[in-house]
Amino acid sequence: MAEASLGQIFLATVLANNFVLAMFLGLCPFVGVSGKLNTAAPMGAATTFVMLVASLCAYGLNYLVTTFELEFLRLISYIVVIASAVQLVEMVLKKYSPALFRALGIYLPLITTNCAILGVALFQTAREYSFLQALVFAIAAGVGFTLALVLMAGLRERLNLATVPNVVQGAALSLMLAGLLSLVFMGFAGLGSGA
């Protein structure tokens, strides 16, 4: 695994192993914030940024806990770092873009409990990525997450205009839609294989 090239990691993570549609990570914002295109994209960007920070920190932390043989603290230290990173993003957004801050609402602090972020940190540890590989992996995970979110938002904006039976309205329809999207992404299986 460790010898996979950077391009392979990128392609595989964005498409074939898309975090949302193939690995089921980050479903809460995927279902919650994908209603409108103009909140989906910034949400994706914010998540990507946090992923990048988390990945960098996780690399350093992993080095520390392995050196001092404190592996049982790994998970706890990761989550604390991620929570702080989210706090940082929140403060920056609040200062520079209050409108966006309000639009993202409760989902911004919830990035902390976005499994995609912790997922990046855990997977890069499990796959023993090098520093550069981890960096590419984090960016690719963010891009993949944003891609899924934006695709879903576009589809749901269209769906709002359609008339559907009462029974399928709401979450049921979104999940079926996500299933179809996921089916589409399965077509990428094998791309950048090895990851």
Partner: peptide, 19 residues
């Protein structure tokens, strides 16, 4: 048992409950 199935089955359960 592949990823899309997860979405489909949960969607179907929600349909059942809606119904």
């Amino acid at each position: 048992v592949l990823p899309p199935g997860g979405f489909f089955v949960l969607g179907a359960w929600l349909l059942v409950f809606n119904w």
